[in-house]
Amino acid sequence: MTSVNAQTTLQAPAQGRSTGFGWFAVLFLIAAQVTAIVISPPDRDMGDLQKIMYVHFPVALNTFTCFFVVLLFSVRFLWQRREQDDLLAASAAEVGTIMTGLTLALGMLWGRPAWGVWWVWDPRLTSTLVLFLIFAGYLALREFVEDPERRGVWSAAVGILGALNVPIVYMSVRWWRTLHQVQSSPSTVDPSYVIGIRLNLTAVLLLTIFLIWRRYEAALTERAAEHVLQTAALGGANA
């Protein structure tokens, strides 16, 4: 009986590779927020309440980035069974779940003054909540399954299913009647707001990449340590 397959033994990554990029992302985000708030006038309808848009919308859109990463690496995991793919998908799912929660929270803070209600069971809000719950379930599932391979397969199945919900969330405002408005575009938004939105979309994308990257490094380090322990427990004769 062989010990842990050398090909699949995980190496801990060099620490701190993402740190520089992380600082860049955070500083970019601060600059983008300040710029957006300074250059944009209060909205004709909602005054300065409009400023929530510079966080709510970029965060909401980048949850889709996270779940696209989940989809991609879940499929590749099922195909090639590399543990790294599972860990990367899980990292993106974790970041995506937090950002979906943030989207919901910011949306509620915006909805109360603008619509008059904190929450309403319209298709956009409901499908976003479903997306959040699926990935909260995904993260819970990972805690319950010990065997890394079974954990990977089950997670990938739930991850792919959850990612399939993304186009439903995106299209919900067009497919069904909702209280939430349909997507804005540069033709429905004055140029003084568009610049701020574009800057913050970029900033949150950078931050998303950093968070997934950093979480992936941590996951790799953790699993590499477990591999070492496992090898030792199995005798470590081949080491």
Partner: peptide, 15 residues
């Protein structure tokens, strides 16, 4: 019993 305002997808600076 509950009045909700539906905002459009437009954001305009005041004239």
């Amino acid at each position: 019993s509950q009045l909700m305002v539906k905002h459009s997808n437009e954001y305009r600076a005041p004239k």
